[in-house]
Design a protein around this nucleic acid. Sequence first.
RNA 1: GUGACCGUAGCUCAGUUUGGUUAGAGCGCCGGGUUGUGGUCCCGGAGGUCGCGGGUUCGAAGCCCGUCGGUCACCCCA
Length: 408
Amino acid sequence: MSFRAPKGTDDVLPPASHTWRRLLLAWEDWSARYGYDLVLTPLFEATEVFARGVGEGTEVVEKQMYTFEDKGGRSVTLRPEGTASVVRAFLEAGAGGILKGAYSGPMFRYERPQAGRRRQFYQVGVEYLGSRAAAADAEVVELGYRYLVAAGVPGLSVELNSIGDRQCRPAYVRKLGTYLESRRDVLCDDSLRRLETNPMRVLDCKVCAPKLVEAPSPADHLCAPCAAHHEEVLTTLTELEVPYEEAPRLVRGLDYYERTAFEYVATDLGAAQDAVGGGGRYDGLAELLGGKRVPGVGFALGLDRIVLALGVEKEPNPLDLYIVVAGDRRKEAVRLASDLRRSGLRVDLDVEGRSVKAQFRAADRRGAAGALVVGDEWADGRVVAKDLTSGDQEVISLEEVQAWVRRP
RNA sequence: GUGACCGUAGCUCAGUUUGGUUAGAGCGCCGGGUUGUGGUCCCGGAGGUCGCGGGUUCGAAGCCCGUCGGUCACCCCA
């Protein structure tokens, strides 16, 4: 029996998990502030949901899905992303009106692990379903930005583009194809392959892009409605004071995107995978799944990459009190801890019967703000209260504990 | 799927050059110094199939072969 977590998966233990807890709590806060309700969907779906939703030709679907047959002979797949599931759930519920949904949890892709890329990774995200308004795009982009700023991601930048829709994109792709054919000699092998499957992805190629500065840009070939939509997204973001950079080369790897496409990049993250989030509009996705036409826009942020961008943080452990048991006062100490916990304080204590010295050491390691000693003073209804930062201590009555904790 | 590098204590590593007695250090952990006081200091202790398997040898952590795992990059993406 090996105790190693499966390849490409990570255990998150303290103290690293303090950062995760903070990020998850902040996510609940920020998504709720913008009016997004919690949406829970299964971690696995019928394989078809992703095959059709994400796109048959995409790398994710072709090579990266955890697909297996269940005992009923159904082909199911561990979700490689969140959007298709949420849209499927919305369709199942009737797809009426507007749904602003927020989710968080693990996603699964079978890949070779590297920095910022795991087989099981965590995302938080939102989907704004049922609206075609540019204001919805702007709101979504803003929320992701505000959250990442609050999380403390350094070197953050928002990159934005419009890749057109089913009206204008075919003509553009033809034009791009003609151009790329003329530059065949400078394209790498991968780009030559993409020229056949998805020409827009060639623009994203790190190797070829520098040689293709003259390539027609999607944003210059938008139809009038797409151009107007894009313009409104940009002006709204400016009004909302969200800094962004126009990224004419930004295309997305999943088939369902239309019009707005964006990424959040942690520019000073050294790793190759420096996009901490991405998203866009996907007005055609619901139809791909076999439902009616439901417009939508959303994003997903990679928590693992956010943690990576934050560096090795020493997050404070928010313990208000550590209770030290002296002499034969175990029962009283346990009861006191319970009372204080019920009153709302974060409290812990030793249950191993260790020495007072060991208990103080534990209090210090845990980062407790203060320690209460339950000992002989208990007979008078009092405890020793010690400030673990200053080292000052005094004897106080039990009634004074709450006030002592709130001392300046 | 492709490539490069790396596997010795919980962690970071030394030891491999030139195979040779009981495999080391720092940090961390536990205990003691202080029978009721942490963070500094001093002392002590626990903890190792040297990734695994085979081969060469009188003798392998070290050399050879294989295998598994890890890391980073490509690809792709959050």
